[in-house]
């Protein structure tokens, strides 16, 4: 199988922080690969390095067989990218934005005409193509950007938080387009997201990234298997030691985690075990406030590997960020 992206020991340092910390992975051609992690984990930095927008501090990275330190223009011609924040000229029409792009990529006139019509059709924007982009909705802008990323026939398409800030119905549509591109057009796609459901639904393989490091990488199914079954969360008031002592001796429980007055238990067929858990709680005099059974999600996988939920990570990161940067950002 041919390799579309190869990253080895990639490091990017800024003055005080290490944004990317010895990251390595390889993506075969045709894969839909996801970088999953909280804001500030280093996902966008990795994308920007692969797209040759910033230079790595050390390490090696190549896209479509070309090193990011090598022929940048040749590499750029082989990739398409959709940035996290909109990058459209709203004073131009949709079609003009695509024409601008096609000319920047030196496509010939007949090629331009054919490709632009093709990508507009792909994202269902043919009838809106001659409207100024400032009249577009958020979802239409995203679709236009995805279309633009495809004009030059890229081997690899980068999508940085493709559904950030969109409503759930529009997200579904964008997901369908992304899938279609990957399965029908055989475009290798690498996307970043901090939405668990997005990574789970779309990606062939996911790398969970936290504080600049990859903590786990596999198919979503395999990642969830690591947790060894269903998760039962018990919310407990008061001491949980007596109950935990009893549960430690139960061989059907594969893992016990204590987390903020909650007990997270891992087991097969959790629904059938809940009565038993309640008995144990009563016998030990533990007051259970609520019981929650969940089939494992990537959120749990993240919790498992990093010891905190993705939301907590973001809060910590933001408070540090505001501290360092004073006024914060827009």
């Amino acid at each position: 199988m041919k390799i579309a992206i190869k990253v080895e020991n990639l490091v990017k340092c800024y003055e005080k922080t290490v944004a990317v910390d010895h990251v390595s992975f390889a993506i075969p051609e045709g894969e839909l690969f996801g970088l999953l992690g909280p804001n500030g984990a280093g996902k966008t930095t990795i994308i920007n390095i692969l797209a040759t927008l910033i230079r790595p501090t050390s390490g090696y990275a190549e896209v479509a067989g070309i090193s990011v330190a090598g022929d940048r223009d040749a590499l750029r011609r082989r990739i398409g990218i959709v940035f996290q924040e909109p990058a459209l000229d709203v004073k131009l029409t949709g079609r003009e934005n695509l024409q601008f792009h096609a000319m920047m990529y030196s496509l010939s006139k007949p090629e331009r005409k054919q490709r632009i019509a093709h990508v507009l059709e792909l994202v269902d924007l043919l009838d809106k193509a001659d409207l100024l982009v400032e009249k577009y909705s958020g979802g239409m802008k995203r679709r236009l950007e995805i279309a633009r990323g495809l004009v030059q026939h890229p081997k690899v398409l980068f999508l940085d938080e493709p559904t950030l800030g969109l409503d759930s119905q529009t997200r579904r549509h964008i997901w369908d387009y992304i899938r279609k591109l990957n399965k029908e057009k055989r475009v290798t796609i690498i996307l970043t997201t901090h939405y668990m459901d997005e990574a789970d639904y779309l990606c062939d393989r996911v790398a969970i990234i936290d504080k600049g490091r990859i903590v786990a990488m596999d198919t979503p199914t395999h990642l969830k298997d690591v947790l060894g079954g269903d998760m039962v969360h018990l919310e407990i008031s008061g001491g949980d030691e007596p109950l935990v002592d009893v549960l430690r001796n139960a061989d059907w429980i594969t893992a016990i985690k204590r987390h903020d007055g909650q007990l997270s238990l891992t087991m097969e067929q959790g629904d059938k075990r809940i009565p038993e858990l309640m008995c144990a709680a009563m016998q030990t005099g533990t007051q259970v406030l609520s019981v929650n059974l969940r089939k494992p999600s990537l959120e749990d996988v993240f919790l498992h590997f990093t010891g905190s939920t993705i939301r907590e990570e973001e809060l910590v990161h933001e408070s540090q960020f505001h501290f360092v940067h004073g006024r914060g950002r827009r």
């Binding site: 750029r76 990058a87 459209l88 792009h101 990529y105």
Partner: peptide, 14 residues
């Protein structure tokens, strides 16, 4: 500010 500079900078143009 409006992000369009990225679109220009990522293109294979000197």
């Amino acid at each position: 500010e409006f992000g369009f500079l990225k679109e220009i900078m990522v293109a294979p143009v000197s």
